[in-house]
């Protein structure tokens, strides 16, 4: 069953107040699926009952959990699989032909607890064309707490079960108490920095690949358009942008074109727009 209108409205207002993220109508399923674990932990019969109690008692700790559940990214390794296959088979080999300095710059723009930037680096190591190359990775997030987690690179048993092939686990992680820690060599390749996508970007040069997945869905149209315009300014003219599977540039910022890459697709700046980029 889906979350009721009243509960959805309460959650939408709460999240908007706390994070400036707008959950448009149609995001009921997202809200429902993210809140089911919280409702269950609290012993409620469903999400509606959980939200009803939240809206009457306004327990601050529970409210914070709700906001976090709806604003943090999912944390699977190689999330959605296809973009990483596209990186290895299409995007990285193409870049390897054109970057004479044998160096690639990648930006993970909403890195959450770090699974995405680390997955990108592991994919680069599995790309024969990039053997011996330097991969310069910038990982940013709005949440300082998430950045701290990502920087530490410590993951629970449950987290390393999510989407991480066993061969990759034993190659890139070591045991740490009950959980696992990313190998220091991999962690050393990532620079973590706090960044609010809604504000002007700091000076950070141009990137060959940008991952901006499942973030735009939370913003209104004007903000989406503004972010995509500014992303164009920090992407190399022949660079590649990855968005979430449910996101697109069409109707938001038409300077982008969608290009198939394996079973996935990437966004590239249209040829005629490349010269116009300041």
């Amino acid at each position: 069953m889906t979350i009721g209108h009243e509960a959805f409205t309460f959650v939408r207002e709460l999240v908007r107040a706390e994070s400036a993220i707008v959950l448009e109508p149609g995001k009921e399923y997202l809200v429902e699926s993210r809140l089911v674990p919280l409702a269950r932990q609290g012993g409620h019969k469903d999400v509606d009952a959980f939200v009803a109690e939240l809206s009457t008692r306004r327990n601050p700790a529970a409210m914070r959990l709700v906001v976090e559940a709806l604003t943090t990214n999912e944390t699977s390794w190689f999330r959605d699989t296809d973009p990483f296959t596209a990186l290895r088979q299409t995007v990285f080999p193409a870049l390897a032909k054109t970057r004479s300095k044998r160096e690639i710059r990648v930006w993970a723009a909403a890195c959450s607890s770090g699974q995405e930037p680390y997955s990108i680096l592991m994919t680069a190591q599995d790309t024969p064309e990039l053997s011996g190359w330097k991969v310069d990775m910038l990982a940013t997030d709005l949440s300082l707490e998430m950045l701290e987690r990502a920087r530490k690179g410590e993951y629970s048993q449950l987290e390393v079960n999510r989407g991480l092939p066993a061969t990759t686990l034993v190659r890139h992680f070591e045991r740490l108490g009950l959980g696992w820690r990313i190998s220091p060599a991999l962690a050393a390749q990532v620079q973590f920095r706090q960044l609010n996508l809604m504000r002007p970007f700091p000076a950070m040069g141009k990137f060959d690949v940008i991952f901006l997945r499942n973030v735009l869905i939370y913003f209104d149209l004007a903000t989406k358009r503004d972010i995509l315009r500014r992303v164009r300014q920090v992407l190399a003219p022949d660079g590649h942008l990855f968005l979430g599977a449910a996101e697109m540039t069409m109707g938001v910022d038409d300077a982008w074109e969608r290009v198939p890459a394996g079973r996935s697709s990437v966004y590239r700046i249209r040829e005629e727009q490349r010269t116009c980029v300041p």
Binding site: E174, R175, L176, G177, L178, R181
Partner: peptide, 11 residues
Amino acid sequence: MTLYSAPDQAL
């Protein structure tokens, strides 16, 4: 400490 030498209550 990466690993424990003996289990404790926290673990």
